[in-house]
């Protein structure tokens, strides 16, 4: 069953993330794909994440298809103008890629080519409209396509953005622009997330809560201080501290599993998106602890 069908069926879905490597050795990445195969409903393939140059998302999505996984093509507006984006979307379509996640993209100043010219010819809301247009047989200039695309398009949202109101405005614009599903920035406070979901439930979209596993109290503090839109509550930091160095990761996995279980049992959202960031091998175990396997 396709990711779209699974999500629409009402099943609590799980997506994970695969970051393409920098270089042509994809053996470790393939190993991660094999670990996730048959367990997750789809895998996101990041697009030069953090503006660090790597293998392109589309090629890795194709590899994922060949390995029996359903890919979600992450597409940022940082590196391609409207011609490049549309051309790549058509290309992704003929390769059999069905899902696309439309994002603005981290600024080049975050990455490893700081002197690059950032593009941002269009942005996430407009990219969603472009996908909708291609699905309806026309390019963004209104020219007829010989054969249209059939993408299931999604977007991202930061439920704990500060300030939140402008973020919610953009969320609604994304819904209007055709986003069918949302994957969120990592969340750590379920009560706050419930507040966001009360708002999100007013719209006909599916929401997958984002998770980044905490490896230590230090990591939690780092996220709080450095990553926009992430706020790890003090009690979780205390819990990690109390676990001690050796058991911190195990506790972090427990926290994630506990949160996922709660989201599922209380029917708070439609699924979860686990961003393992170098710990892809732990995803099946987290899913097991959350009662998803």
């Amino acid at each position: 069953m396709s990711f779209r069908d699974v999500l629409n069926s009402g099943k609590f879905v799980v997506t994970a993330e695969v970051g393409p490597p920098k270089g042509t050795d994809i053996s470790e990445m393939i190993h991660h794909m094999e670990l996730l195969k048959g367990k997750v409903d789809a895998i996101n393939v990041t697009d030069n994440q953090s503006a660090v140059m790597r293998i392109c998302s589309m090629a890795v999505c194709k590899i994922a298809l060949e390995h029996g996984l359903e890919p979600i093509l992450q597409m940022t507006c940082r590196d391609r103008n409207r011609i490049g984006l549309q051309s790549d979307l058509l290309g992704a379509s003929i390769l059999g890629i069905k899902n696309v996640l439309c994002m603005t993209g981290d600024h080049v100043s975050a990455g490893d080519h700081k002197g690059a010219k950032p593009v941002y010819d269009v942005e996430s809301v407009q990219l969603l409209k472009i996908v909708d247009s291609l699905n309806n047989g026309k390019d963004m200039s209104g020219n007829e396509l010989k054969g249209s695309t059939d993408f299931f398009q999604g977007a991202v949202v930061t439920p704990e953005a500060n300030p939140l109101e402008p973020q919610l405005m953009k969320f609604e614009k994304k819904v209007k622009a055709g986003a069918k599903f949302f994957q969120t920035q990592a969340i750590y406070d379920i009560e706050k997330f419930k507040e966001f979901m009360k708002h999100a439930r007013k719209f006909p979209v599916k929401v997958l809560a984002g998770f980044v596993v905490l490896k230590s109290a230090g990591m939690a503090k780092f996220l709080n201080n450095n990553v926009p839109g992430i706020r790890v509550p003090e009690e979780l930091i205390e819990e990690l501290k109390a676990a001690g160095k050796e058991k911190a990761l195990d506790t972090g996995m427990d926290i994630t599993a506990r949160h996922i279980r709660q989201l599922k049992e209380e029917g708070i959202c439609d699924g979860v998106h686990i961003m393992a960031i170098g710990m892809e091998d732990k995803v099946p175990e987290i899913m097991q602890r959350a009662g998803l396997l």
Partner: peptide, 25 residues
């Protein structure tokens, strides 16, 4: 810095820009 036309990106932190805390979003 991204010239966005329809709202802030996910890089807005406490009302400031991801590329520099000196820039207000």
């Amino acid at each position: 810095p991204k010239g966005l036309l329809n709202g802030p990106c996910g890089g807005c932190k406490d009302g400031h820009c991801e590329i520099s805390p000196d820039i207000k979003c």
